[in-house]
């Protein structure tokens, strides 16, 4: 039971790891789209959710999202964008490309944790 956090900021990945740990999941990380795909190649069977930043070097999040959705092995894994790209059209674009949810920065830690819980289908009663 793992969540893959993809963001070029190590600090942001650390913030996200707090929420992931609270929910009892292991964390896998990647600093850009290319690394994310490499991690998925190795470990996709354990990954229950992908958190994807947008602006990253090598391969941005939107491109990574498209590649994830094109791959038979990865496409069923839910993806949530976690990004500064908060304009409506970007949100719509990402959702249409297959992202399940969207969290724009800045966010509270509680929002982050609740939205991850929501993506994983964790609900009350």
């Amino acid at each position: 039971m793992a969540i893959l956090a993809v963001d070029d900021s190590r600090i942001m990945r650390r913030l996200i790891s707090g929420a992931i740990e609270v929910l009892g999941y292991d964390m896998l990380e990647a600093g850009n789209g290319v690394e994310a795909l490499e991690v998925l190649e190795k470990s996709y069977e354990e990954v229950d959710l992908i958190l994807l930043d947008w602006n990253m070097p090598e391969m941005d999040g939107y491109t990574a999202l498209q590649k994830i959705k094109e791959d038979e092995r990865f496409k069923e894994i839910p993806v949530m964008m976690v990004t500064t790209e908060s304009e409506r059209e970007n949100m719509v674009k990402a959702i249409q490309a297959g992202a399940k949810n969207y969290l724009s920065k800045p966010f509270t830690q509680e929002d982050l944790t609740s939205k991850i819980a929501e993506c994983l289908g964790m609900g009350f009663e």
């Binding site: 900021s9 908060s86 800045p106």
Partner: peptide, 9 residues
């Protein structure tokens, strides 16, 4: 980065 992103939105 976050301030910039929020402003640009």
């Amino acid at each position: 980065n976050i301030i910039g992103g929020a402003a640009k939105a």
